[in-house]
């Protein structure tokens, strides 16, 4: 069960890290045009970049969960998994956000995908926490 949850977290980390790169407005050739003629990326692009920063440690948490045997380590990894999952949700919803137009790809795919994968990562970390406590109780 614990290894399975670690595997789920790794998959979620991959989705969080890779999907935004292909579903932000920049990837669709859209950017903000300034008065001086220059273009700057829309804010969903920065959410995509920040989600990589969340995905890398989350992936490492997943790998560590597969190999972890100590109670203290498991507890710390679970808490870290929940925190990183929460960050994956908060990035598109409140910390950075996505574009205002609900018809844009970042609103239709990137934001819901980050919320969904973040929620699954949180749930998987919670199950990992519960199952590691149970295993430790049994072995004691």
């Amino acid at each position: 069960m614990r290894k399975f949850m670690g595997g789920i977290i790794i998959v979620m980390a991959l989705v969080i890290g890779i999907l935004p790169a292909f579903t932000d407005c920049q990837s669709q050739g859209r950017s903000l045009a300034l008065a001086n003629g220059k273009t700057v990326p829309m804010k969903c692009h920065w959410t995509g970049i920040a989600s990589i920063v969340v995905a890398v440690p989350l992936g490492l948490v997943g790998i560590s969960e597969i190999f972890s045997k100590r109670k203290e380590t498991s507890n710390a990894l679970s808490i870290l998994g929940v925190t990183l999952g929460a960050f994956a949700i908060l990035l598109p919803t409140s910390l950075i956000g996505v574009c205002a137009n609900p018809d844009m790809l970042c609103n239709m795919i990137m934001k819901p995908a980050l919320i969904l994968t973040g929620s699954i990562a949180i749930a998987a970390s919670a199950v990992y926490f519960a199952s590691s406590r149970k295993n430790i109780e049994l072995s004691a």
């Binding site: 239709m108 795919i109 819901p112 969904l116």
Partner: peptide, 13 residues
């Protein structure tokens, strides 16, 4: 429920 709620717009399109 989470999928339908979150991807509502994508489903409609």
């Amino acid at each position: 429920v989470l999928f339908v709620f979150l991807f509502k717009k994508l489903i409609v399109v």
